[in-house]
Write a protein that binds this DNA or RNA. Sequence first.
DNA 1: GAAGACCTGCTA
DNA 2: TAGCAGGTCTTC
Length: 271
Amino acid sequence: MPELPEVETIASQLRGRGVEGKQILSVKVNWAPTIEPYSVAQFSKALKGTTIEKISRVGKWMLFSLSSGQTLMIHLRMAGSFSMVKGSHDRIVMKLSEGQTLYYRDTRKFGRWKLVDDPQTILFKLGPDALTRRFSLAYFSDAMKKRHRMIKPLILDQSIVAGLGNIYADEALWEAMVHPERLSDSLSDAELAALFKAIKHVLKVGIKNGGTSLGDGKTNYRQVDGESGGHRDEVKAYGRSGKSCERCKKTLKKTVVAQRGTTFCPACQVV
DNA sequence: GAAGACCTGCTA
DNA sequence: TAGCAGGTCTTC
């Protein structure tokens, strides 16, 4: 579930809880496939005794910079989350100094923890992070114009721009009034500028609201304190199929675009 | 492009 | 019980 705003929210809350500067005293791995590329024993050994110096984020990756010089790179995929309190589906438990314990929770077991010497071995595959200056209008326009593909799968492609997932892609397309199936090289300069602006905007608002949690179940995105993300009430398109468009009042429609559920307004997002 | 794989749990 | 879910990777 987590996209850029959710990962950013979690990273900043872990910093706020004082995880930076703490030493890793022990590591318990309850679902071995989460760990790559080491064995559980090697992984635990490499982490034990090191200090988490810095927590940062690139795209949907969370980076723990360790005093050992290595970097622990965490991808939450569909259902990963962190908590300071024991719960169910805790796949990794790290005891830290000063009595703190970090629980990595992941119902669907898709998340991955990679311990690497150099983050670039993973990050080189990513395009610019959507909220950095490297992701500029010039770069975005060029990337869209030189391809001939549907716009939605392109903005979901992490090698082009890192951070957008299904929620914020639908939100950005709705905000920019661009139909998800439009071909990337058919967008006018004005449409490209509107979409570019919308991408930055929806992500920033998502962060401001602490991310998006759908429904009220237990398996969806949670902040570190267990709270739902406040962006749930601000979503304009995603998950609102059958409800009315806040802009034109017509009924939002759900379809499938490149194998992903896609909600849009058939009246304001014209093909 | 598309479809399947990886997983579990909620909803219709 | 079938279908679907915020992601990514592999294999057609």
